[in-house]
Design a protein around this nucleic acid. Structure first.
Lengths: 207, 207
DNA sequence: CCTGTTGTTATGCGGTTGCATAAACTATGC
DNA sequence: GCATAGTTTATGCAACCGCATAACAACAGG
């Protein structure tokens, strides 16, 4: 019997349990009973905190995306130069906990749901635009700092390219944690980005 | 009642039905009955061609990956220059049928299976190494053609970077078929690649 | 202490669905 | 026409799923 908790503490535990469950056994194993097992409680409790199974799934998806976002943007301080901010952001996106088999698995498991379920689709769109915009700003800042003044289309294209690069490296890194070490992944990412944006990398000033 | 067929024709239809089914309704809807419906036959027939549900799933995954591979490498002729070959390859990877919501959905639906099922994992590894190697050769050829003679690590890193870029653009393109048109995606991809490899793009000779 | 509220369990229901099997039927080649 | 490959129909039977509800445990305030 689980010890009694107060406040929305349990709710949080349940959401995390959902994520671990999905990461370990896949979305099809994310049944009310199974999730409850992961959380160490009994199935009925889920209905106490969420009005349906869809509810807890949406909450889990939201938390997952929010964590990804935070893991990347949380490392950025206001006192940095634009280039430092961009670099921090890139590095975070090429390190754990973002680059992990689990995060990729969660992403892949959730993605299909956003195609059949409107609520899930909304959640994805929300975070997608949020990340995209924030990212564009980062790129914009870094470019300006080096005297580049890109047009709107140029900026958009560069953002798409670098964003794509990072996403692709994220996948490669998460899928081959054995064969590709994290340091090399970061080196590759930073170096490639500096070439794409035509700005020197911070540690290797020239190239 | 479906008309009678001969040879392994039906088998092929069943595999395709599996893929359509997964793309449209997700892996959890890929039940024996549902797949049979998509194929226009009855459930019992599946067991005639495949020894279990896992069997047909593996066959479907194999076909899916093989098609992706073919869609990209099939466009390459032996009489082209290395650069042309690379460009063709990149363009194919940034066009339908590779860049489609369906292919991404299939990919995302299958990926988790490769983490719980050894047979599926083998299939993924097989095609993964195959694509990686082929891609590295393409890059290598293009670099040589421009007088670059990369070291092994350089070549590997460049391959990872460009490969990541393409994968990332594939995701972005497949997820936002509305907001991002295919031509722009290709422009972005080719341009970015030429910067990464430090070789001029074919149509815009200088930049 | 008692009581009301909140957190938690236990249990049951109705229903779906899944995979597999076996036996019956049909077309087709020889 | 007979044998065989292809196909359907019917069925078994179990797992299990999501949801609901009622009983039980803990804690807070009066």
């Amino acid at each position: 019997m689980a010890t009694r908790r107060t406040g929305n503490d349990r709710e949080s535990v349940l959401i995390d349990a959902t994520l671990t469950c999905i990461a370990r056994e896949g979305i099809s194993a994310a049944t009310v009973r199974n999730i409850a097992d992961y959380a160490g409680v009994t199935n009925g409790l889920i209905r106490f905190y969420f009005k349906s199974k869809d509810g807890i799934l949406q909450a889990a998806y939201r938390r997952f995306l929010e964590r990804l976002f935070e893991a990347a943007h949380g490392t950025i301080g206001g006192d940095m130069t634009a280039c430092e901010r961009l670099e921090r952001y890139l590095l975070a996106n090429l390190s754990p906990p973002i680059v992990t088999p689990d995060s990729l698995l969660l992403w892949a498991n959730f993605l299909p749901l956003t195609h059949y379920d409107d609520a899930m689709a909304d959640i994805r769109r929300h975070w997608y635009t949020r990340t995209t915009l924030a990212f564009r700003d980062l790129i914009h800042g870094a470019l300006e700092e080096h005297g580049h003044a890109p047009s709107d289309t140029e900026l958009r294209r560069l953002s798409v390219a670098v964003n794509g690069l990072i996403d692709g490296l994220w996948i490669e890194g998460s899928l081959s944690t054995e064969t590709l070490d994290i340091n090399e992944l970061q080196t590759i990412g930073l170096d490639a980005t500096s070439r794409l944006l035509d700005i020197p990398a911070s540690h290797s000033p020239k190239r």
